[in-house]
Design a protein around this nucleic acid. Structure first.
Length: 119
DNA sequence: AGAATGACGCTGA
DNA sequence: TTCAGCGCCATTC
């Protein structure tokens, strides 16, 4: 309910790992929360990826907007206080079509991470 | 400490 | 295709 403000609080190692991985998603490419979790060896922790991105102090150079849900849409919810619409704008600006409901062609823009992933 | 809450994901109706 | 119901698990209340 209350929106915890991460500003000022040091990001934990989990946040750092999520951010560093998301930072290498190329322009106009998309990844899902579950995909990011999996690449970090954390299968089943998609929600935690969402939280890590939620803690990003905005504005940021990290392309957090390139992470969407597995259904191929932006999770639109008032609890995001507008970051969902910002995400839509940023994606459209990169050339990815997003409809009014937040749905987008995930298959066409899916990011194929180069292997091996080294950190 | 226990309950509630999600920027999730999968299954089944 | 949409939607409800669950399982999931760190964070919050």
């Amino acid at each position: 309910m209350a929106r915890p403000d991460a500003g000022g609080l040091p990001a934990g190692p989990w946040d750092q790992r999520v951010w560093r991985l998301v930072a290498r998603i190329p322009t106009a490419r998309l990844a899902t929360y579950g995909q990011v979790a999996e690449l970090l060896g954390a299968w089943g922790r998609a929600r935690q990826v969402g939280w890590a991105l939620r803690r990003l102090p905005l504005p940021t150079a990290i392309p957090w907007h390139r992470v969407v849900n597995a259904r191929g849409s932006i999770t639109m919810t008032p609890s995001r206080e507008g970051s969902d619409w910002i995400q839509r704008d940023l994606l459209v600006a990169e050339g990815i079509p997003v409809d009014a409901r937040g749905r987008l062609p995930l298959d066409r823009f899916r990011w194929d991470p180069p292997l091996p992933l080294v950190f």
